[in-house]
Amino acid sequence: MLKLNKIHHIAIICSDYEKSKDFYTRVLGFSITRETYRQERSSYKLDLSLHGNYSIELFSFPGPPPRVTGPEATGLRHLAFEVDDVESAIAALQEHDIQTERIRTDVLTGKRFTFFSDPDGLPLELYEKTTWNGKWINSL
């Protein structure tokens, strides 16, 4: 079996670099680790960290095709972020006029979650913090 240590990063291609850069940094709170303009590709590569952990590579390319369908298409379904309290996180998003779906409860863990979208419609999830001690610890 291949020994994997952890997920290193998630790569996202955006259609409007400045809009997505603002969204992931100012709205979601990621820190810029490095920003590189690649002249030969007419492309930016923005390395983003969350709490000191390298997490996302945000790319711009000239004329990328739009996402074909919603989250039920084959491929990456969504990117989920852990939050302490889903309602507080929703309120913070609403301050930036970002709409979320209704809050739902995961039937397996009892934790609350919701979905919203980045500027290109990439489905993002807020998932309340889960404790694991050999079994799920439910707060609801």
Rank of each mutant, 00 (worst) to 15 (best):
R67A: 10
H78D: 14
G63W: 01
D97I: 00
L58P: 02
V83I: 08
V68H: 01
P66N: 13
V68M: 07
G70M: 04
E87V: 09
G63A: 14
G75V: 10
Q94K: 15
A92N: 12
E57F: 04
A91P: 00
G70N: 14
V83E: 05
A89G: 09
Q94I: 03
G75C: 10
G52S: 08
H96V: 03
P65R: 14
A89E: 06
P66L: 12
E87N: 13
P66H: 10
S88G: 02
T69P: 00
F81C: 06
L58K: 06
D97N: 15
L50F: 15
F59H: 11
I56R: 11
Y54V: 07
D97M: 02
H51L: 11
L76I: 15
F81D: 06
A73F: 01
D84L: 13
R77T: 08
V68A: 08
A73D: 05
S55M: 12
I90L: 04
L93I: 06
F61T: 09
H96P: 01
G52A: 10
G75L: 11
I56H: 12
A80I: 03
A80L: 01
S55W: 05
A92R: 12
T74I: 15
R67T: 04
F59S: 03
Y54R: 08
H78T: 05
E82K: 13
A80N: 01
I98L: 09
E72Y: 06
S60K: 10
R67D: 04
A73V: 00
E82T: 15
T69K: 02
G63K: 14
F61N: 07
S60W: 11
E95A: 12
D85F: 06
S55R: 10
L76Q: 05
